[in-house]
Design a protein around this nucleic acid. Structure first.
Lengths: 151, 151
DNA sequence: GATAGGATCTCCAGCCACTAGAGGTTCAAG
DNA sequence: CTTGAACCTCTAGTGGCTGGAGATCCTATC
């Protein structure tokens, strides 16, 4: 029987995140000690490892919920799991393509800059005027600047 | 003098988003008509186009705020703008690299799957067991599954 | 000049997947 | 028995919007 802290150490998932997963139904409600503290077993650890790994691969929690419920039913076809994974793969590919377009644009912008004053800076100019662009990048959609909830 | 709706149509930025940009100080407070409706001029349109394009290139709002304040000071060096753009470029490159690792992993997972039942599905198995992985992808951090605020 | 209906106003809640903090309780080591 | 780390619940905040409620305004038609 692991405390939440041990489970956290064992899986690399932060304590508040484990509680959050319980709250949103990804993990079953944990047993409690006499003093109301959560207690976990190996099966919870496995489930949490599954969740963690899926998150690392970028699956949203709703997909993980579905994958978990599939993984409990050993006899059914895994076609449904494939669909989810393929959807995720497409999303990743799509995102890579968009980001590569951005990368080109940013590089072009930066190489054109003559390192002078703002008034003739290509960076500022390009940002203000879409017509200087190769692509019509219509919104990337991701928090690119800050790697988000990376610790 | 444009109404907020016309400005929205002209720039492709949604009406509530324009109000949001005003609220967080990216756009100055708009003039108002007799009946308290926002009125905009060409200069606001330019500023909003700058914001929009910067967002399309993935800059976070805080960076855009800084770029905007730089763009007002024509005489200073554009080095500061270059720093911001380079930081953004690094972030984009980094994100591409992480996503490419994910793509590989997902593809490997999918090609290994024998299309049988869940009990011998590689997709489910790999998700549960990190040791089958090539990379130690430590959290992608982005909402990959749903393209976020794309419309 | 009345009216219909679209556009606008403000304010508040929600999205995703957490993260941080306050303020209190429990547990394990010494 | 005391300390202090780990745990508990609850609330609020992150980024960058988005959507809705309910009220007001503006414009076109009759």
């Amino acid at each position: 029987m692991l405390s939440i802290g041990k489970l956290s150490a064992a899986t690399g998932v932060k304590v508040p995140t484990i509680r959050y997963y319980e709250e949103v139904g990804l993990l079953p409600e944990a047993e409690r000690s006499a003093g109301n503290q959560r207690l976990y077993r190996a099966e919870h650890q496995e489930r949490l490892a599954f969740i963690r790994h899926s998150r690392e691969l970028g699956f949203p929690l709703d997909d993980i919920r579905e994958l978990l419920s599939l993984s409990d039913r050993l006899e059914i076809s895994c076609a449904a799991a494939d669909v989810i994974a393929n959807r995720q793969l497409s999303a990743v590919k799509d995102r890579i393509a968009r980001l590569q377009a951005l990368q080109q644009e940013l590089e072009r912008m930066l190489t054109q800059c003559a390192k002078g004053t703002i008034s003739d800076c290509k960076v500022i100019e390009v940002l203000g005027n879409h017509e200087n662009c190769l692509h019509d990048h219509h919104r990337e959609g991701c928090h690119l600047g800050y790697p988000a909830h990376d610790s």
